[in-house]
């Protein structure tokens, strides 16, 4: 039976590969793929990669907007973490008393988390800019809501995956549900929670840069302005700053992980 299934799966793989090959014939290679006048600017942009604008003005501007981007991301992430911890723990259902209330709790809070992350942070940003105007709060809330939804969902899943035996043993010593949470579930998932949050923080920095395209200021906004002015060398300066930010956070996250293993 198993060998038959494997056999079927290989046939499907072959079929999909053939389908892909056939679809290549549908592409108009002469005109469709690239804008004929686009090759020039593309070459210019990539040439500018090696000559970023390092003049003092631009550097100061880059540092300022990096700081703004980082500040939005940090504030948004902090709020997201609080939301995720509260809603995620509720969505895991470990605090529910009976089987029925557990199902009900899991369903409703997972629904809330789903709603939060179903809408992309850019869309939230538009909505908040429309209602609050171009204020930092718009950026922070726009980040916090979908990131809270993503983190909360993962936290809930992590808590549900904790092995059962130690929890049963805790219950046998007379621990209440809240005591089980702090002595069993949370210590078991703490490390994975921290490393996943750090990874999401890195994503939040990139998102925060993109969000500034909406007009909230920050690296993305500067990239947009320089692109409009065709100053590709400035664009690359800002991009390098963004890369540095991400690398710094990655380094911090590695340091944290190493410390946790001790």
């Amino acid at each position: 039976m198993l060998s038959f299934d494997l056999h079927k799966r290989k046939v499907l793989t072959l079929f999909l590969l053939l389908l892909f090959a056939w679809s290549l014939f549908g592409v108009n290679w002469q005109e469709g793929v690239m804008h004929s006048s686009g090759i020039g600017p593309a070459a210019e942009i990539f040439a500018a990669m090696f000559t970023p604008d390092l003049s003092l003005d631009i550097l100061i501007l880059a540092i300022e907007s990096s700081w703004l981007t980082l500040a939005y991301a940090t504030a948004g992430m902090s709020l997201a973490l609080i939301l995720a911890l509260i809603i995620g723990i509720l969505a895991s259902g470990v605090l529910a008393s009976g089987k029925r209330s557990r199902t009900y709790m899991k369903g409703s809070f997972r629904g809330v988390l789903g709603f939060m992350r179903a809408i992309h942070e850019l869309v939230w940003a538009w909505l908040f800019v429309a209602s609050f105007g171009l204020s930092p709060y718009a950026a922070i809330f726009a980040l916090a809501i979908p990131y809270g939804g993503i983190l909360g969902r993962i936290f809930a899943d992590m808590i549900n995956d904790v092995p059962e035996e130690p929890i049963l043993a805790l219950k046998a010593t007379g621990a209440s549900r809240l005591q089980c949470l702090f002595y069993g579930y949370l210590p078991s998932v703490k490390n994975s929670m921290i490393s996943y949050t750090m990874y999401r923080y890195e994503c939040a920095v990139r998102s925060s840069a993109i969000m500034s395209f909406v007009g909230l200021g920050g690296l993305g906004y500067q990239i947009q302005l320089s692109l409009n002015d065709l100053h590709y060398d400035e664009v690359w300066t800002f991009i390098y700053f963004l890369i540095i930010l991400v690398i710094l956070i990655d380094g911090w996250s590695n340091m944290l992980r190493k410390r946790m293993q001790l």
């Binding site: 092995p163 035996e165 130690p166 805790l170 007379g174 002595y183 069993g184 210590p187 703490k190 490390n191």
Partner: peptide, 16 residues
Amino acid sequence: AKKIGIIRQQFDLVGQ
């Protein structure tokens, strides 16, 4: 818990 305590194989503790 005051009356009955349980000990099983070694997977009973919270490792972290």
